[in-house]
Design a protein around this nucleic acid. Structure first.
Length: 434
RNA sequence: GGAGACGUGACCGAGUGGUCGAAGGUGCAUGAUUGGAAAUCAUGUGUACCUGCAAGGGUACCGAGGGUUCGAAUCCCUCCGUCUCCGCCA
């Protein structure tokens, strides 16, 4: 969420910044100016009357002691009128506050000035490419064929259980998934200084509001209910560990010297992917349930950008250690996620598609999430609490990593060579059919 | 699922209708004392918003939201959370 006061005072500037995303984004601020002005005016009149009521109510106590019943009654009737007036104003104010809040919650983050211009995927800037595409003396097969031939990947049975966009892993496939999770967690905790956390997979709406999924993107989520489908206390399945991990410190005031705080969490992720019909219908790329190891950092706002570089390099290290060919691009303003001020995508090479596909998305959110979730820090003992900046990135999407291994490491004989880094955990250097 | 207890500031803990943003203690900060430290003493120490160049002034907040009242941390209702016992369960 943007700072309401900043928005009110810099309306045109903010509108221009949001315009870099899209016209819709800029339009999300329409009539915000009037709303803010109305809010201010209401606060002023309400508080003036409240001050008067407080002063006069106090004198009532003394009047009561004096014992003049008639005077007391007369006074009480007068104050009743004032009190009713205040209640009316308070209601109006609450309503305006709600509208302001509602408006603000629907406004996306301002793109950072360093974010390239552009409207969509095509305008993203490729910054660097690592490694080389493996050369094949045969036609590389898609991972679903590789997996099926090895007997480790099964979509038909998953569909019998849960419908489309689910999968079952067997044998070395399941083990590879687990090995990848451990590998990533170990790497980030041992070499990159992250603290591992294990979180709930079901969260309240409040948490999703904190990170920005709600109220706008409810359709992408799985919502649970016990008996009443409209239960306001209903829990949602997390779409990413970003939600529980970032909200870990919601409403807290952190010690300035504790920053940066770095967490890594493995969780399954659940997405209803509304609106993705027809995209990536085959294979593991787009599933309702997938595993992800997520990196989250809480930092001082001035350091957000350099921290984003650091976070991105941590995610990249995973791909490098696995020897997977990938590239890094900076998302253009039009392709930025709702809450992000700047994002780097890591895209891994999929030979069967002859294309790079997203395997990690590393973003700085600036104070956007911290303002929603009220995550603050105090610099020195005396200083005012300030909002932190939050960052997160996949480190990595486990299912897509498994896809990349099956595709990049496939051999002519149908086997798959296991990257060095995973061989101990896999107990073998290759997955063979059978 | 059943029965009960409870939610006050960084923490502990008073406070059952009026001058309570809230006693007291601990912690923390600054100063005094000291060769230095401990101990001691003094002072200070919440958040948000409105207003003001500033100093300052004002309003709200005692789990959350409603209600009663001229006036609510204190009374009533709903919700959320925590704890204890029983049941069930991995």
């Amino acid at each position: 969420m943007l700072d309401g006061r900043y928005v009110a005072d810099h309306l045109e500037q903010v509108r221009a910044g949001l315009g870099r995303r899209s016209e819709d984004a800029a339009a999300s601020l329409d009539d915000a100016g009037e709303l803010f002005a109305r809010r201010r005016e209401l606060i002023r009149t309400t508080e003036t009357l409240q001050a008067r009521r407080n002063a006069e109510s106090q004198s009532m106590g003394q009047l009561a002691k004096a014992g003049d019943k008639a005077a007391l009654e007369a006074r009480r009737a007068e104050l009743k009128v004032l009190s009713d007036e205040i209640k009316l104003l308070e209601q109006q104010l609450a309503e305006v506050e709600r509208s302001v809040e509602e408006r603000l919650l629907g406004v996306p983050n301002l793109p950072h000035p360093s974010v390239p211009d552009g409207h969509g995927e095509a305008d993203n800037q490729v910054l660097r490419t690592w490694g080389e595409a493996p050369a094949f003396d045969f036609e590389p097969r898609p991972h679903w064929d590789v997996g099926a031939a090895l007997g480790i990947l099964d979509f038909a049975r998953a569909s019998r259980l849960s419908g489309a966009r689910f999968s079952v892993l067997f044998g070395q496939g399941a083990r590879l998934e687990r090995a990848l999770i451990s590998f990533m967690l170990d790497l980030h905790t041992r070499e990159h200084g992250y603290t591992e956390v294990y979180t709930p997979y079901l969260v309240r709406a409040e948490a999703l509001r904190g990170t920005g999924q709600l109220p706008k993107f409810e359709a992408d989520l799985f919502k649970t209910h016990r008996s009443d489908p409209d239960d306001p206390g209903a829990l949602y399945l997390i779409p990413t560990a970003e939600v529980p991990v970032t909200n870990l410190h919601a409403t807290e005031i952190l010690e300035g010297r504790a920053l940066p705080i770095a967490y890594v969490a493995y969780t399954p992720c659940f997405r209803s992917e509304a609106g993705s019909y027809g995209k990536d219908v085959r294979g593991l790329i787009r599933q309702h349930q997938f595993d992800k190891v997520e990196l989250v950092r809480f930092v001082q706002p001035e350091q957000a950008l350099e921290e984003l570089e650091r976070l991105t390099s941590h995610a990249e290290t995973v791909l490098q250690k696995l020897g997977l060919h990938y590239r890094v691009s900076a998302l253009c303003a039009g392709d930025l996620g709702f809450a992000s001020q700047k994002t780097y995508d890591l895209e891994v090479w999929l030979p069967s598609q002859g294309a790079f596909r997203e395997i990690s998305s590393c973003s700085s959110f600036g104070e956007f999430q911290a303002r929603r979730a009220q995550i603050r820090y105090r610099d020195e003992a005396k200083g005012r609490p300030k909002l932190v900046a939050t960052l997160n990135g996949s480190g990595l999407a486990v299912g897509r990593t498994l896809v990349a291994i099956l595709e990049q490491c496939q051999q002519a004989d149908g086997s798959v060579l296991i990257p060095e880094a995973l061989r101990d955990a896999m107990g073998t250097d290759r997955i063979v059919p059978g």
